[in-house]
């Protein structure tokens, strides 16, 4: 089972649900499948552990990364790059929009309502059932309702991202996937895919999971750890050109 997402995919979820890690890994997997991918970091809420940390790795693989201007990269100011509205109006074949946490982070989507207009797009909510406030179905539904109210958009599907970082074992993935399957059934919205740490993927029973699997190669690591190498052809030329353009 392959992940076949395209069009505009908006990724939402509660704080620390893994939106950015999912967005970055999804971008690379789809790019390696030959699709043109653009990823926009709309996390205006929290200055730590954002898409911008994986910028070089993404750009080297030909993913177009849209970030606030360099001078504002480390600010906790609500700066929305004017490029964002433009990329929504004329999207790449796959445009991933990584939104900040909770309803607070999703508020920014309401301000882009004009740009979205009547375009089709998917808004997927990431759930890690091992995080506080999303360990119950009711907790997930509450966050869904809050995000929908502040973004003025409807969640269209779920992403199961069940993990305990380095301590994740196969059973955590199976049980977490089952949890989000129940949530999907309860809401009538599809479970688009399930994630698993790349180190576990080979040992997992794909049939038992029954949904497409996104291997997660951790990018947002603390300074004493190494990010996992992302797959794909590294185009030094593309990365250099991009840097030159950015400068």
């Amino acid at each position: 089972m392959e992940i076949r997402l395209d069009g505009i995919v908006v990724i939402v979820g509660n704080y620390g649900s893994g939106k950015t890690e999912v967005a970055v890994n999804l971008a690379v997997v789809r790019r390696n499948a030959g699709i043109e991918v653009r990823i926009a970091d709309l996390d205006l809420v929290n200055p730590y552990f954002r898409t911008r940390q994986a910028r070089k790795q993404l750009e080297a693989r030909g993913v177009d990364v849209v970030l606030p201007e360099d001078q504002y990269l480390n600010a906790d100011l609500p700066i929305l790059s004017p490029r964002i509205a433009g990329l929504i109006r004329s999207p790449a074949p796959l445009t991933i929009i990584d939104v900040g946490g909770d309803d607070v982070g999703a508020t920014v989507l309401a301000s882009l309502a004009d740009a979205f207009g009547r375009q089709d797009f998917q808004m997927l909510q990431v759930v890690n059932p091992y995080r506080p406030f999303t360990e119950t179905i009711e907790g997930c539904l509450k966050i869904q309702a809050e995000i929908e109210a502040s973004s003025r958009q409807a969640v269209t599907g779920w992403i199961a991202n069940p993990h305990l970082l380095d301590e994740t074992v196969a059973d955590d993935v199976y049980q977490g996937a089952d949890f989000v399957k129940n949530l999907a059934e309860r809401t009538g919205l599809p479970l688009e895919f399930v994630t698993a740490p790349v180190e576990l993927v080979d040992g997992l029973d794909a049939e038992r999971i029954g949904r497409p699997l996104l291997p997660i190669r951790r990018q947002l690591v603390p300074p004493w750890k190494q990010a996992v190498q992302l797959p794909g052809i590294i185009s030094k030329v593309a990365a250099a050109a991009k840097t030159a353009k950015g400068a």
Partner: peptide
């Protein structure tokens, strides 16, 4: 059971 938490959340709990 173990849960995955930010330091700030864990300090609160």
């Amino acid at each position: 059971a173990k849960v995955l938490m930010k330091g700030n959340e864990a300090i609160g709990e």
